[in-house]
């Protein structure tokens, strides 16, 4: 603890911590010693480097000098392919992995090492695996967004039914992402909320609206909404909208009931070359202290005690009804929901 107090005077993070009174993270001394022996770890990440990867590494390295974090940023597919090839060749180089869709193939290939972090008990059940195969680090509510320059207040959709109004025909877009945070996730949300029959009836009507599938990520689709390319877009992340709204973008994100919430998660890799350093970083990242670094970067921390930087983005303080869909739960329905997407919307 004294160790921490001497360190916390360094860097902006410490100031932020002091201001928000986040409890400091304290790890088992034996783990810290073992981690220092290893001296480094390799993190395969799907997160944004400048926005979160470097800040959290900086926070960690300030806290635990002598343990260096090397990272390899890549999209989930490349990350999974890399880890799987390393695993098959018995040459595991990475210690930690994060992401959503990257997880199911890794678990199926038996490349994940269970490790239950200290803070796991604080997390809602939906955001952690009971055996410690994974724990959520960020949550990602997928919502619509409207362009307020183009859409009158009275016309803003209040429910999923409102998306069927003729005024939206040919004027909506969503990211063509074959994942939980793309159209298949939307389809899953509708089918779960409305039931199979009524849900399919709704989706068939929605298909008639000719939604443009933009082959890009959520953020690019939101940018097209801000530009006015599409007045209404679906399946973007509400925290992206909040960041642009704070900079003056003429948009607002919508709370339709229920709002699908997916999440990113972190896991320890089996046969990790630096298991103790990796465990220490995992503990740190998922502690209230580490999670507050995520919050400061504009992400929505999964830890229930850490609020988001902008208020009202998480389901509990935003007072919207959520439907939590994990990457693993999604992967069980992946084929069926994708088939519906291809049949109706492509």
């Amino acid at each position: 603890m004294t160790h921490f107090l001497t360190r916390r005077t360094f860097g902006g993070l410490a100031l932020g911590l002091a201001a928000s009174r986040v409890p400091a993270f304290a790890a088992e001394p034996s783990l810290v010693d073992a981690a220092k022996q290893e001296g480094r770890l390799v993190w395969y990440t799907t997160l944004v480097v400048g926005q979160i990867v470097r800040p959290i590494i900086q926070a960690f390295e300030t806290r635990y000098p002598g343990i260096k974090i090397d990272f390899v940023p890549a999209p989930w597919q490349e990350t999974s392919l890399r880890i799987i090839n390393e695993g098959r060749a018995n040459q595991v180089k990475g210690d930690l992995v994060d992401g959503g869709a990257s997880f199911p193939p890794l678990q199926a290939a038996g490349l994940i090492q269970p490790y239950l972090v200290q803070s796991a008990a604080s997390y809602p059940q939906a955001y952690r695996d009971p055996t410690g195969l994974w724990t959520a680090n960020i949550i990602q509510p997928s919502t619509p967004s409207v362009n307020l320059d183009q859409v009158k207040k009275a016309d803003i959709p209040q429910s999923y039914e409102d998306l069927l109004h003729p005024r939206w025909k040919g004027r909506m877009a969503w990211p063509d992402s074959p994942s939980v945070s793309g159209p298949p996730g939307f389809i899953g949300t509708i089918l779960t909320a409305m039931g199979q029959d009524r849900g399919m009836e709704y989706l068939e009507k929605l298909a008639g609206q000719r939604i443009a599938s933009v082959p890009s990520n959520q953020r690019v689709v939101l940018d097209q909404n801000i530009q006015g390319q599409y007045p209404l877009v679906l399946m973007i992340y509400n925290y992206h909208a909040a960041i642009s709204m704070a900079e003056g973008a003429p948009i607002d994100w919508l709370r339709l009931s229920p709002t699908m919430v997916s999440f990113g998660q972190m896991s320890l890799l089996k046969n990790a070359p630096h298991p103790n350093a990796a465990k220490l970083f995992l503990e740190f990242s998922l502690s209230e202290e580490g999670q507050s670094v995520y919050a400061a970067a504009g992400y929505l921390p999964a830890h229930p005690h850490v609020p988001s930087k902008a208020k009202g983005l998480k389901p509990d303080d935003g007072q919207y009804k959520d439907f939590v869909l994990s990457a693993l739960a999604y992967s069980e329905h992946d084929k069926a929901w994708q088939a519906i997407y291809k049949k109706l919307f492509v």
Binding site: V42, V48, V49, G50, Q51, D70, F71, V72, P73, A74, P75, K93, N217, Q218, R219, V220, L222, D223, H240
Partner: peptide, 21 residues
């Protein structure tokens, strides 16, 4: 690319795919 062999295009992709247009 490994941790020490990152190239500028990896950084660009990272920024682009995460909305720092």
């Amino acid at each position: 690319a490994g941790p020490n062999s990152q190239t500028i295009s990896v950084a660009m992709f990272d920024l682009w795919s995460n909305g720092q247009g």
